[in-house]
Design a protein around this nucleic acid. Structure first.
Lengths: 143, 143
DNA sequence: GTTGCTGGTGCGACTTTTCGCAGTTGCCAT
DNA sequence: ATGGCAACTGCGAAAAGTCGCACCAGCAAC
């Protein structure tokens, strides 16, 4: 984690940002979690260690980490956004709107679309962690 | 509009729903608007005609119209969702996160992805009105 | 060391959207 | 007509997230 810290400290430092204890604790909480974490869950973890943090600080830190490309955000349609550390791998999700099943999809699946958008519209799409809604095979069978 | 009304009344009736004055007014407000409307804008239009409507009713009606496939929803990253009547045509949007430019994209652009997801994951993706975030050519040139 | 500047935090208020609840409305069967 | 039932609505409250403001921290220049 020391090496991680210092590489993040570098990234922040290069842009004139500080690596404050609050930011470290938010980062640790994300790395600490197995999978996609919500802001509220991160907040709970941080509060356990330092009760004076404010949830705004958590949101602001997440915003910053997104900008730096350290975490990705995803909305799986639960009414709350979830976060995922980039260094734990990229992937996408197919969300069935009938049964709620979530199918994980390889990063490469969207590579072609990314190419098309770049070629045709000169637009560099940021498709690192995307949720696609629809209906899974099982639910379509059941009429 | 009469014919439209009755076809919608049919769709609703088949499922045991009613075509109430509130729902008619919400629908009229959406059809009445040139482009993508927010719930607040729809609410404002409806209130002008009937001041006792509640914004919850607007949201609930929009939810219903989505389910019936009459309107699509889109989040262009402004902190509020916008709605679009299906009968005014389908399309997608590329949203530049640097300058905020919005590039309209033809429906067919995502057809191939839809095919791949169906073939590979047996998943029928609902990609009728999608926002893709990234960086436009102009903003990438400016370093 | 102190002045000034930028960045960061906590707090409270606010926005957008959802939800539970109680009361209405329309309809069907008796 | 009236009793029952499901759909619908308005209302108030709550959840998730954002924002302005005032204050604090770190640092550089003098």
């Amino acid at each position: 984690m020391d090496q991680l810290d210092s590489s993040i400290a570098d990234k922040l430092g290069q842009r004139g940002y500080r690596l404050t204890p609050q930011r470290l604790m938010v980062l640790a909480a994300i790395e600490n979690s197995d999978d996609h974490v919500s802001a509220e869950e991160i907040y709970a973890q941080v509060v356990a260690r330092y009760p004076y943090v404010n949830i705004s600080t958590v949101y602001r830190t997440l915003e910053l980490l997104k900008e730096l490309g350290l975490v990705t955000e995803i909305d799986l349609g639960e009414g709350r956004v979830r976060y995922h550390p980039v260094d734990k791998g990229h992937h996408h999700h197919l969300v069935c709107q009938k049964c709620g099943a979530i199918i994980d999809v390889d990063e490469s699946t969207l590579a072609r679309l990314q190419d098309v958008l770049l070629a045709r519209y000169n637009f560099s799409a940021s498709l690192r962690h995307v949720a696609i809604f629809g209906t899974c095979g099982k639910c379509r069978q059941q009429q």
